[in-house]
Design a protein around this nucleic acid. Structure first.
Lengths: 164, 164
DNA sequence: CTTGACCTTCCCATCATGGGAACCCCCATC
DNA sequence: GATGGGGGTTCCCATGATGGGAAGGTCAAG
């Protein structure tokens, strides 16, 4: 099976399959005489494993550990559990941070008239007028990942905006 | 005031101040004869505005819009509110996705004995044994941002692990 | 006049992913 | 047998926000 088929069968793009091979996450695929990569059902199985782990938010580095544990039939389940629990912790931490942001902002937006007048508590807060709920957060780096283009950005839909 | 002072006063690193200037988020700073950037209190004020917006998870692109609205004394608050509400929507969407991951994984971890035996529902799930709660998710790209090194990674703490 | 703290620009790395160019291969159809 | 289209291959570039670091200029205090 060629890389395209493996991609369709596993849900991992051909681009990413090559990448994973390049960084050593998956073993070097066999080749035809023409240099085409060849994949077996077992390879596709591994790729699906990787994709599922990605879907659960594991990093490539963690997936490498998970793959090693998967292949090790003598693994101790405690090692898997440790990895998973740590990841859950990180995920929930991130959730808490994002929720904090969302709540602060939703609160501010609720107090914004959202009409043609310029008065706006959101801008005021950003400008540092007053107590400063936001100012507390000390400097968090990239909490938000990048977004794909075309996800219906800033224009148009302002649900329930006029009328406070 | 030099860039270092402005950085300390605003909470934005000197590195990022230069970057923001480079991409046009903030205006080109004045210079001394030696080429040093010079900042006023007003500049620091703007930098703080930027930092607060970052703390709320706005992208640089969105901050550019917010800054424009801030400077426009005739803005309509509805425009600010629209931006903020859209961002809240995105934040909450992201929270939902992360929570989904965390819950799936926590659920799996709860059913893992976490002992020396190899049996492990987490690995089984990743390997695709059975119903496949995870398999549903269609291919989400980078939902997690990168983490700084040294955030107490995968080693050590597995809270309440032994004993199912 | 030296030293050390600061500034400057420029390049590199991150992380996972896609886009695209330039080129090669295979199979089916005319 | 030629040709066309839909594969494959490698290599480079871009993303977003951020830090690291090198090489070199500047400034103030001792």
């Amino acid at each position: 099976m060629n890389i395209g088929d493996a991609a369709r069968a596993s849900g991992v793009s051909a681009k990413m399959i090559r990448y994973y091979e390049g960084i050593g996450l998956i073993p070097r695929a066999g080749r035809t005489e023409a240099g085409y990569r060849v994949y077996s059902e077992q390879d596709v199985h591994s790729l699906r494993f990787v994709r599922r782990a990605r879907d659960l938010g594991f990093s490539v580095e963690q997936i490498a550990e998970l793959l090693a544990l998967w292949r090790d039939r003598d693994r101790a389940s405690v090692d898997v559990k440790r990895l998973a629990s740590e990841h859950v912790r990180v995920l929930e931490e991130r959730v808490a941070q994002l929720l904090q942001m969302a709540e602060t902002l939703r609160h501010l937006a609720e107090h914004c008239h959202g009409d043609e007048r310029p008065e706006c508590p959101i801008i005021d807060e950003l400008a540092g007028a007053g107590n400063g709920t936001v100012t507390e957060a000390p400097y968090k780096p990239g909490l938000l990942p990048r977004r794909k283009a075309g996800t219906a950005a800033t224009a148009g839909s302002a649900p329930a905006c006029h009328g406070d």
